[in-house]
């Protein structure tokens, strides 16, 4: 296994171009090192992204907040501007793993793994985050919907890397993140949920994690709630419109996940409607 730590984007682009297929990008390593330990992966080359200037920065302009590929979950959880504008993202980031893991693992890694149970995905989907995928001489900006293509699968090509996460401004404070897991500390989600009320028109947005191969907005339930309101009976009816196809695994049975997802939707929307 070879280890390289490029110091510029140019060097990185060159490496990706030449050896894209056989290399693995390393930022936090909290997933990659486990996979290597279990023999699930044995990359010939590891390219450490942490040497490139600016990759660990959070910046903003009038249109969006931009998060670099090496910005850790802990940095996001503690970042004032993010906490002000996207509090649910700070909350979701804080719920990932343990402090030690959050001190290493970047948000970009949570996104690129594209796990259906990734805690930050429902929130990112809700906030309409975009990801910038770069490649020598080319880059594209995708919505989360276009980026996430399946469980553990994304639109990222072997010669590309995620170079930036964009959160469109203004953010929204009326967003809640909820997580149901087997224990309170350091656990993967059995069900996660982000729900919010957006903009002057008070539009409901809802996304559920760990209950479908791809984390996406629950548009049918959203439309129903936007049309009918947030009374108790509406919430219960909206639950029947949830698009869920959970699996049964060690973190929960499929039917249990469905039930919990529905209860979380109701409980969270009840909290939110007070803000509407």
């Amino acid at each position: 296994m070879e280890y390289l730590k490029p110091v510029s984007r140019k060097e990185l682009h060159l490496l990706l171009k030449k050896k894209g297929k056989n290399l693995r990008l390393l930022a936090g390593g909290t997933d990659l090192l486990v996979r290597i330990r279990h023999g699930k992966e044995s990359p010939a080359l590891i390219v450490d992204l942490k040497g490139i200037r600016g990759f660990d920065k959070i910046s903003s302009n009038k249109k969006f907040i931009s998060i670099g590929p090496c910005v850790t979950l802990q940095a996001i959880a503690e970042h004032d501007e993010i906490r002000r504008n996207f509090p649910a993202l700070a909350e979701a980031s804080r719920s990932v793993g343990s402090w030690q893991i959050r001190n290493r693992a970047p948000l970009a890694g949570n996104i690129c793994n594209a796990s259906p149970a990734a805690d930050t995905l429902p929130v990112l989907v809700l906030y309409d985050a975009r990801v910038k995928l770069s490649h020598s001489g080319r880059r594209r900006i995708l919505s989360m919907k276009r980026f996430l293509t399946g469980p553990g699968k994304s639109a990222l090509r072997p010669d590309e890397y995620l170079s930036e996460i964009r959160l469109p401004l203004p953010g929204e404070k009326r967003v809640l993140f909820e997580k149901f897991s087997r224990r309170k500390g350091l656990d993967l989600s059995t069900v996660s949920l982000a729900a919010g009320i957006f903009g002057r028109r008070n539009r409901v947005r809802l996304a559920i994690g760990a209950c479908a191969p791809i984390v996406k907005r629950q548009t049918e339930a959203e439309d129903f709630l936007n049309e009918h309101g947030l009374q108790d009976k509406d919430l219960e009816l909206a639950c029947s419109l949830l698009q869920l196809s959970p699996i049964t695994d060690l973190r929960g049975k499929a039917a249990f996940r469905r039930h919990i997802a529905a209860r979380l939707v109701v409980a969270t929307m009840k909290k939110l409607r007070e803000d509407r």
Binding site: K253, A255, R258
Partner: peptide
Amino acid sequence: TPEKILSGMHGLDFDSKDSNA
């Protein structure tokens, strides 16, 4: 577990193959 408590409280059967309890 929460699953067993909910089963008992609401008579839900989470083992059903049917997608909705």
